[in-house]
């Protein structure tokens, strides 16, 4: 499974998002530190889930970080996040 697919699966299963888009932006960071020619190093995740309601920004990001711990400790070098609850979009 690609890292991107793993990110989508984990976030979908844990957070039941009403919107989820995972972008592999590795091509925009060619040659930057952490970039790897194999790709899948820089991601951007846009997610909306009821699980984030009432949580602070830091708490929301930490929820995602925890779910994607293996990926962040593996090849993922950068993870840009847009994390919202329904009604905030």
């Amino acid at each position: 499974m690609s890292i991107r697919a793993a990110i989508e699966t984990k976030l979908t299963q844990a957070l039941a998002p009403t919107r989820l888009a995972v972008f592999d932006e590795s091509d925009r960071h060619v040659g930057h530190p952490g970039w790897d020619p194999k790709g899948e190093t820089h991601f951007c995740v846009d997610i909306v889930s009821p699980a984030f309601a009432g949580k602070s920004r830091i708490e929301r990001h930490r929820m995602v970080h925890t779910l994607l711990d293996a990926e962040l400790k593996g090849g993922v070098h950068a993870l840009a996040l847009s994390v919202k609850a329904p009604g905030e979009e």
């Binding site: 830091i58 990001h61 962040l72 950068a78 840009a80």
Partner: peptide
């Protein structure tokens, strides 16, 4: 307890990374 950089602190309190 934050896996990425940059990290901003104001008066000793963690504010967030780039997105936040």
């Amino acid at each position: 307890n934050w896996p990425t950089l940059p990290q901003l602190y104001v008066k000793g309190e963690f504010v967030g990374g780039c997105d936040i």
